[in-house]
């Protein structure tokens, strides 16, 4: 095959495809909305007197019981192996494995869906652009639609884009099982046991803690601007006010850093946070880890040798 192949389809096919994608996207959004609504109505205040690390409280599954260090190694390793694949088919397989992980971890699907939607803009760009801009190689299959003949859709581009979308979704699906099955401090502690400097681990936790404080501050300031009639427009005035707003946010946060540091020192901070020891390793931890890494390797082999990429 040294020539590109071409084929023409009626325009309606393209319109249908676009319509289908759009509908799927809206459906996902709608599901998320109703799911979160239903979740709130049946919401019960969690019993905070039980630690999250206690598996009975935070949920009980294979992933919850898995030692954090092993989980991190296994899922991160698996993620990199998934990213190393090339074909859309192996990406699809990886996505299915991701779905399986969410299922096995007994996590609500809504949160994973939110993650997928967060990436959708970026990924849509690939889906739209890649088929149009992929350079035609010998053996490529070019598709045109009647009426818009000047646009040549390269199927190889589409397959590249689909592979990207699949891989991105697969890794995104793994995020919830990886992170939501243990409290953040525990996960960070796992990271530090794996060699991330302790200081950096503590910085992650501190930053995470103060995001909520600053979000609240930013929200109150935005309301304060709103009640004095500030409306965001495309104008120099808006940008000036946004500049002040950012500046104020930074000033307040810098002032807070000093107060927080004082409070830490006042309670005897010597550069170390107490690190709770949560860990116990069992046979199953090794087994699960080996299992996931093996799956990843198999996937990669399947991708490289079977599909011949």
């Amino acid at each position: 095959m040294s020539e590109t192949q071409a084929m023409q389809l009626p325009l309606i096919y393209l319109l249908l495809a676009v319509f289908l994608c759009g509908t799927l996207w809206w459906l996902a959004l709608w599901t998320l909305k109703t799911a979160s609504h239903r979740h709130q109505e049946g919401q019960q205040e969690r019993d905070w007197s039980v630690p999250l690390i206690d598996s009975a409280a935070g949920g009980d599954s294979l992933f919850h019981r898995w030692d954090v260090r092993f989980k991190l190694v296994a899922l991160l390793g698996f993620a990199f192996l998934v990213v190393a694949t090339r074909s859309p088919w192996s990406a699809l397989l990886a996505m299915l494995l991701g779905l399986l992980a969410v299922r096995l971890a007994r996590l609500p699907f809504a949160r994973s869906l939110r993650r997928l939607l967060a990436m959708s803009g970026f990924l849509a760009m690939f889906l739209l652009i890649m088929p149009l801009t992929a350079v035609p190689h010998p053996g490529d299959f070019l598709l045109t639609f009647s009426g818009i003949d000047f646009l040549r859709f390269n199927l190889r581009g589409l397959s590249l884009a689909l592979a990207i979308v699949g891989k991105a979704c697969a890794v995104a699906l793994l995020m919830e099982p990886l992170l939501a099955t243990a409290s953040l401090p525990r996960t960070v502690e796992g990271l530090t046991r794996l060699g991330v400097p302790e200081k950096v681990g503590q910085m992650i936790l501190l930053a995470h803690r103060y995001i909520f404080v600053f979000l609240e501050e930013a929200r109150r300031m935005a309301t304060g601007m709103q009640v004095r009639g500030f409306q965001r427009r495309t104008s120099m005035q808006t940008l000036r006010v946004m500049g002040n707003y950012l500046g104020m946010l930074f000033v307040r946060s810098f002032e807070r850093t000093h107060r927080v540091y004082d409070a830490m020192q006042a309670r005897g901070y010597q550069g170390r946070f107490p690190a709770p020891a949560y860990f116990s390793v069992g046979k199953s931890d090794w087994l699960h880890t080996a299992c996931w890494l093996l799956l990843g390797l198999l996937l990669l082999c399947f991708d490289r040798f079977w599909l011949g990429n």
Binding site: L52, S183, P185, R256, D262, M264, Y269, P274
Partner: peptide, 18 residues
């Protein structure tokens, strides 16, 4: 400014461990 840990438990713990 004083509750800089992830949970109340850790916050109370902080001083005690120090």
């Amino acid at each position: 400014d004083q509750l800089f840990c992830s949970t109340l438990y850790d916050d109370v713990c902080f001083g005690l461990v120090n």
